[in-house]
Design a binder for these strands. Structure first.
Lengths: 247, 247
DNA sequence: ACTTTATTATGTATTTTTTACACAATAAAA
DNA sequence: TTTTATTGTGTAAAAAATACATAATAAAGT
């Protein structure tokens, strides 16, 4: 069967698959879903957007926003579609985290899921109609969820904690204009630690990613802080450089 | 249809799915594969273990080691199985990298793949029988592969470059006993840069992960270096601390 | 108008980490 | 014995991270 000149490992024509379509038809197939951990920031807490499980088995429990991957749909497209269908939002930050494949993770049988992390601005989001089975939950206070979603959420949260120390992703969770205090509160909520205010400001100032918009907060019962916006252009241009920043 | 007390979003019994098995049976299904980028280190070069594509369309091109995910098989198990089947190796370092889902990535139709990164010791590996259609390739000199495997490999290489700066993974690619020069050559090959010898050694010494085995290299035509082995126990115990080391 | 209150804005000294850099000792090969 | 290539080692300088306190400001209350 094998070519007689052992030096060459090149296959003979008869060993090659001529019809890849038939080959793929013979492959085992599995149901595949995408589950999104949609994070938001409100009242100085990191929130995650959840929906009530529609399985009787998980009655009363919450689950991540998910759906099947459709025929010929890319995973990223599926994640974007889910976000759009559930929240009405387009153009949100989304990144693939990892897949979860434990055979018993779904009570209905073998379903593999690809977890995504999404960051959205809650204020902006609430202008759109929100499905009334959706609810924002404090990430820290969740303990139980439907399926293996608590495990997935925990993983996504850790992923975000690491990621936000390497890229300035936090801006996706804030309004267009924000004060340095809001920015710091966000980092503290995500990382679950306290930071020194002067050093935090120094760090961000040195990155040069903040644009002073010459406005100040209102609605605060004390001296208002300056407002800034994020320099997305500069970030996109120098993306590679920001890898490795941390606090 | 909706519960009349709008306050409660809890679903009524009739809205809940009672039979999850039937639900999952209705899901669309896709062929799912695992592809492994198996890295090795030899002659001061980062290598990747590839197999000739068995598709006529890709005749002469190389592909990553991959296979279908079987019914009720976990992704990690599929990756381990592939490694075992192809190389005879058990207990190798394996980590999930990410999924690739472009609808046209496979000429036979829609196939989603989950990429894994594996690190193995080539010397050790060669003691086992190696499938003679497998071949070690210099990662830097590859330009084209079957399917989207070049893209996947590039992604895995970048993943490894980042990962190795946060965890001392390099030891998986080296023999049990190695010299500091070998270790540095490895890092230089993976990261594709030159490092200062004294600072490199200082860094590793300060991590305390090297055990001096009181032996020296042989086979070198000059002053031999001391040999060390990796302190796996200490690493496992203090794993969390090593996150964040970089050169 | 004044006082109180909460918070902003800001700089420096200290410590830690990173970087740059050179020479004597050693083993093998000639 | 000499040559060769490489090992093993330390220190000074630069950069980054950390710790820390006070005056200025706007709003709210009196």
């Amino acid at each position: 069967m094998r070519n007689s000149t052992m030096k060459s490992t090149r296959k003979t024509e008869s060993q090659l698959v001529q019809d890849p379509v038939r080959l793929v038809e013979s492959y085992p197939k599995v149901p595949l879903t995408v589950d999104c951990a949609v994070f938001g920031f409100q009242e100085n807490e990191l929130k995650v957007l959840l929906i009530r499980s529609d399985l009787a088995l998980y009655d009363g429990l919450w689950s991540l926003l998910g759906d099947n991957v459709q025929d010929n749909e890319e995973l990223d497209d599926a994640a974007n579609r889910i976000l759009k269908e559930r929240t009405g939002m387009d153009d949100v930050y989304l990144d693939q985290v990892r897949s979860f494949s434990h055979p018993a993770r779904h009570p209905g049988g073998r379903v593999i899921t690809v977890a995504y992390c999404s960051l959205i601005n809650i204020q902006h989001h609430q202008l759109k109609r929100i499905d009334n089975e959706l609810h924002w939950h404090n990430v820290q206070s969740l303990t139980q969820m439907a399926f293996d979603h608590f495990e997935i959420l925990t993983h996504c949260h850790k992923w975000l904690q690491k990621r936000i120390q390497e890229h300035p992703l936090g801006f996706n969770l804030l309004p267009d204009k924000f004060s340095l205090r809001e920015l710091q509160n966000l980092y503290e909520a995500i990382l679950n630690l306290q930071m020194d205010r002067r050093n935090f400001r120094k760090k961000f100032a040195s990155m040069g990613l903040l644009i002073d918009v010459n406005e100040i907060e209102n609605d605060v019962p004390h001296r208002p802080g300056k407002l800034y916006k994020f320099n997305f252009d500069k970030y996109e241009k120098n993306k590679r450089k920001w890898i490795g920043i941390d606090f």
